[in-house]
Design a protein around this nucleic acid. Structure first.
Lengths: 230, 230
DNA sequence: TTCCTTATACTCCCAATGGGAGTAATTTGT
DNA sequence: ACAAATTACTCCCATTGGGAGTATAAGGAA
């Protein structure tokens, strides 16, 4: 039974403290879920894998008539986790359904497109409110892991950065689309960002004689994914 | 056989022009793949579903001794797609393995964390080069769909926005971590963004008497996902 | 005190998906 | 003339998603 990224995420939680499976599922949804979403049923399976490889230990507790299992990391598990921290991970991968609707928006009406963008913005506002609540909690004296605040600040900063990017894009797109008279006039396009990107020459590119744009027509936009193991 | 978001993505491509399955798989990877990544084998199955529901038609062509299937949209398919454009879609969902490594970085060494951030930055630079090539291609006279430029400008702007957000975060995080002497001193944390978020009062929140931060401790960070159908 | 709701603590299962392996003809480059 | 890359798919298994189901415990309202 091979370990997946999800296994290591659970193992990571166990390096912080011991948890019941229920708590692990909760934590996975609450904190890690925004950048590593996984089904609850799978999270219940993971700690068993860890135990079978001696990376964690299960302790059976009884709370009244009902039993619960508490998992804790073993020294071997801690070492395995440290090794994993050194390995390169998969690049970010995004699923963003609204962008498909945007990409084919000329099939629908301007109001449909604006409604799609409006919904994206509404999602952003919801996330921002949540972010504000979490920030207040993290800075309060009720925060559970004050010794981890500097680390948590790193990941929560990403959440903010991401939310801002979505908001910035959605609002720019809305303003852009509002200027359109029809859905199929490409001459009104705001292509300033494309021009800026086209002009930019970034380091690391090893020329092959041809204009780099000649290669794109047929080139795969592959992201050299290290694949497998999620 | 119910239609998934992937089905509609394929259907969307068919509203632009007819394609062979191979070309559809290519396009899905190249253009839509950055915000809706799906396995090639599944993309080969999708057009068959569309045909079975009369949303598309298959035409068999022979190129020498080898046959190929060309798919085109039907009027019913076009209508179905327009209806889909009006429906709300799933909110953005991200998988970002490096963030798990960051979130548990105090288990490893400072160099491990910096290496993780460096790899994220390297990925960003790769994407930026690709973005530049694509921009040059889109503005060139070899671009395949000039009549769609204004639409494509919207989605490619998102790519830029996202890449920038990752870059901005990775560099901020690197600078932040470089200041750390040990991995377990939370007092060095840069929490300015948390403070700013905590102070922010956003519209739409309906107070319930309590301080909003009191609700977070146990609250689920749910994103009200409309689930199902990808 | 009783009842109702919510939280805790899981298991089971099927449909959907990922992703690689495999086959073969055709085109392009050396 | 030959090799490599591209076109054009099919097949299949392991993994995952996600909902349904079961049951006890704790907290709050009537």
């Amino acid at each position: 039974m091979r370990l997946t990224t999800t296994s290591y995420a659970i193992l990571g939680l166990l390096t912080v403290k011991e948890w019941t499976t229920y708590e692990l599922a909760q934590q996975m949804e609450k904190s890690i879920g925004t950048y590593w979403p996984r089904a609850k049923s799978k999270i219940y399976e993971e700690p068993k894998k860890l135990v079978s490889q001696n990376l964690a230990r299960a302790r059976r507790e009884k709370a009244g008539a009902r039993a619960r299992t508490v998992y804790s990391v073993t020294p071997k598990g801690r070492r395995a986790f440290q090794t994993w921290l050194q390995e390169p991970g998969a690049p970010p991968q995004l699923e963003f359904e609204a962008l498909i609707k945007v990409f084919f928006a000329e099939q629908g009406m301007k109001e449909d497109l604006l409604a799609t963008l409006e919904r994206v913005d509404a999602w952003v506002q919801m996330r921002r409110r949540l972010g504000a609540e979490i920030a207040r909690y993290l800075l309060s004296d009720r925060a559970e892991f004050p010794q981890r605040l500097h680390i948590i600040a790193l990941t929560s900063r990403w959440q903010l950065e991401f939310t801002r990017a979505v908001e910035h894009w959605a609002r720019w797109a809305r303003d852009e689309v509002e200027r359109w008279k029809t859905m199929d006039d490409p001459s009104v396009a705001d292509t300033r960002h494309l021009e800026a990107q086209a002009k930019a020459v970034l380091g690391g590119e090893h020329g092959d004689g041809r204009e780099s744009s000649e290669r794109v027509g047929k080139a795969s936009l592959d992201q050299h994914n290290p694949k497998k193991g999620s």
